[in-house]
């Protein structure tokens, strides 16, 4: 008795819940989770908040079997991701969700479908919150996972594993474009990512160059039209005259995209200054300009002669 009493007092002081109390606590949290996310209706903020709070209490107070603990971490992350009412640009709930996704990745004994989705979610979340290195790292993890698993593990996780690994390429390229950064060394080491990024960059440059040439030619045409409708009387030789137009702007007409948001020092290298037209392209443009100017001058001389 003398040894039992201090032990009992110690347990009471610890405030340790009995197993029955722990089971009830878990059941209550699950009931709120069910009401918050599983009824098909729009999530209610207060139910979600209560479910999160109860689950977090369970994590603190209940001795959980490992699979159940992982399930609860997952549920909490989902609850945070689905919390409504956040103002635009406020990613604080997603940031809280990321803490739980990180725990899932850390504590899962094997790679399973939750781990795969967790990495994908972390990539998206960190992309939104501006933690670019972490974002890229998670997207790249999706790419490396299939290579690290045995055939048996892969087949158990497919088709999701292959799908996420494939989509990660698109996510990464979009991520680099959105933030105006180059892939890191790790990103460039992934051949598929490097190739996709390079292809996308070239396509964008080509599109911009084509757009610039089209703009210039349209400018010449417009200038020609303006000169025939101006004060000089054009000779009707079937050709339209155009006044000497102002010399078009400098050849480096590739206008930059709308200004990128300022990029914090993330360790990524900035995208180099958009390259101007090549030498050959410049020559062609100059020739075209010279021809147009010569034509205009010739027409103008004829007019002056007649006067």
């Amino acid at each position: 008795m003398t040894t039992i009493t201090p032990l009992l007092c110690f347990c009471l002081l610890l405030g340790r819940l009995s197993e029955d109390e722990q089971l009830v606590m878990l059941e209550e949290a699950e009931a709120y989770h069910h009401d918050a996310l599983c009824c098909g209706a729009k999530p209610d903020r207060s139910t979600i908040d209560t479910a999160i709070q109860k689950y977090e209490n369970v994590l603190r107070e209940v001795d959980l079997a490992e699979p159940i603990r992982l399930e609860i971490l997952w549920n909490i992350a989902l609850l945070y991701m689905n919390t409504p009412g956040a103002p635009p640009g406020d990613y604080s709930h997603w940031k809280k969700a990321s803490e739980y996704y990180e725990l899932i990745v850390k504590e899962s004994p094997t790679v399973d479908k939750r781990v795969i989705v967790a990495h994908a979610q972390l990539g998206d979340i960190y992309s939104r919150t501006g933690e670019l290195t972490r974002a890229e790292s998670n997207y790249l993890r999706l790419r490396s996972l299939p290579r690290e698993l045995t055939d048996e593990q892969r087949s158990a996780l497919d088709p999701e594993l292959t799908e996420f690994a494939s989509q990660a390429v698109n996510h990464l390229v979009a991520f680099y474009e959105e933030h105006g950064v180059m892939p890191s060394a790790q990103g460039m080491a992934d051949e598929e990512v490097a190739a996709a990024f390079s292809k996308r960059s070239k396509a964008r440059r080509d599109a911009q160059m084509n757009g610039a040439v089209t703009d210039f030619l349209e400018h010449l045409l417009n200038a020609s039209r303006e000169s025939t409708s101006g004060t000089s009387v054009p000779e009707d030789d079937g050709n339209r005259e155009s006044q000497v137009a102002a010399v078009p702007p400098a050849m480096n007409t590739v206008s930059p995209d709308s200004a990128d948001p300022p990029i914090p020092n993330t360790g990524f290298s900035d995208v180099p200054t958009r390259p101007g037209p090549t030498r050959a392209q410049k020559t062609v443009l100059l020739l075209g300009l010279a021809l147009g100017a010569a034509l205009i001058l010739w027409r103008s001389r004829r007019v002056w002669r007649k006067k």
């Binding site: 197993e19 029955d20 722990q22 089971l23 878990l26 059941e27 699950e30 209940v62 001795d63 959980l64 079997a65 159940i68």
Partner: peptide, 9 residues
Amino acid sequence: VRKNQSLAH
């Protein structure tokens, strides 16, 4: 049997 219930309990 309740979820997370121990075998002992």
